[in-house]
Simulated scan of single mutants.
Amino acid sequence: MIAFDDLSVGDTFELGTYDVTETEIREFAERYDPQWFHTDPERAREESMFGGLVASGWHTAAMTMRLLVDGFFADSAALGAKGVEELRWRRPVSPGDTLSATVEVVDTEPERPDRGLVRLSITTTNDDGEAVCTMRADVMFGRRE
């Protein structure tokens, strides 16, 4: 299990992959971000600047979170985040894309005897290696006893 004491500036973790489907894009959008270029494939194809259906940026962030949990946080002493900064949606995400993510430790700061704060730089990329989402997150990690 990865604890605060195991993390150093410059550590990098490659996370797994996530396959994006049209069904999931539409279901997420209909529930949380029902703009037509997320919900209506025909209109998106004919009228949007994207040339087809694209995922909501919030959906992209949620898929990134899934990669983080499965590929990093699940086997760590992560205690939750204090926030996210510099969240950017760099490119649209389309049905059929496969996303992957990389996490880099950019700062560590002991806070209390039982935990520390780790600033992470997170980059999510598509099949072509192009960044689709970037962010920095401040995450609390438990310390080893």
Rank of each mutant, 00 (worst) to 15 (best):
A44S: 11
A44I: 03
R45L: 10
R45I: 02
R45S: 12
R45F: 06
E46T: 12
E46A: 15
E46I: 09
E46Q: 15
E46L: 15
E46K: 13
E47N: 11
E47Q: 15
E47Y: 03
S48R: 05
S48V: 08
S48G: 09
S48A: 10
S48I: 07
M49E: 14
F50Q: 00
F50R: 02
F50G: 01
G51M: 01
G51P: 11
L53Q: 06
V54A: 04
V54W: 02
V54E: 07
A55P: 01
A55I: 04
A55M: 03
A55Q: 00
A55G: 05
A55W: 02
A55S: 08
S56V: 02
S56F: 03
G57K: 10
G57W: 02
G57C: 06
W58N: 08
W58A: 08
H59M: 14
T60R: 04
T60V: 14
T60L: 01
A61S: 14
A61I: 01
A61M: 08
A61D: 02
A62N: 05
A62D: 03
M63G: 03
M63N: 04
M63A: 09
M63R: 09
M63P: 01
T64W: 00
T64L: 09
M65S: 13
M65W: 11
M65Y: 13
M65C: 08
M65E: 07
R66L: 01
L67P: 05
L67V: 03
L68Y: 08
L68V: 06
L68Q: 15
V69L: 12
D70K: 11
G71K: 05
G71M: 08
G71H: 05
G71D: 03
G71N: 09
F72A: 05
F72M: 09
F72Q: 02
F72N: 01
F73K: 00
F73Y: 12
F73M: 14
A74H: 04
A74I: 12
A74K: 08
D75A: 13
D75G: 10
D75Q: 10
D75K: 05
S76E: 06
S76C: 09
S76P: 07
A77G: 06
A77P: 06
A78K: 02
A78H: 05
A78M: 08
L79A: 14
L79N: 00
A81D: 08
K82Q: 10
G83T: 05
G83L: 10
G83H: 03
G83D: 01
V84G: 12
V84M: 15
E85K: 11
E85T: 11
E86M: 10
E86K: 15
E86A: 15
E86N: 15
E86P: 04
E86F: 12
L87F: 04
L87P: 12
R88W: 05
R88L: 10
W89V: 11
R90D: 14
R90S: 14
R91F: 04
R91Q: 13
R91M: 09
R91K: 14
R91W: 01
R91N: 13
R91E: 14
R91T: 05
V93R: 04
S94W: 07
S94D: 07
S94N: 13
S94M: 13
P95Y: 09
P95S: 07
P95N: 06
G96F: 13
G96I: 05
G96Q: 04
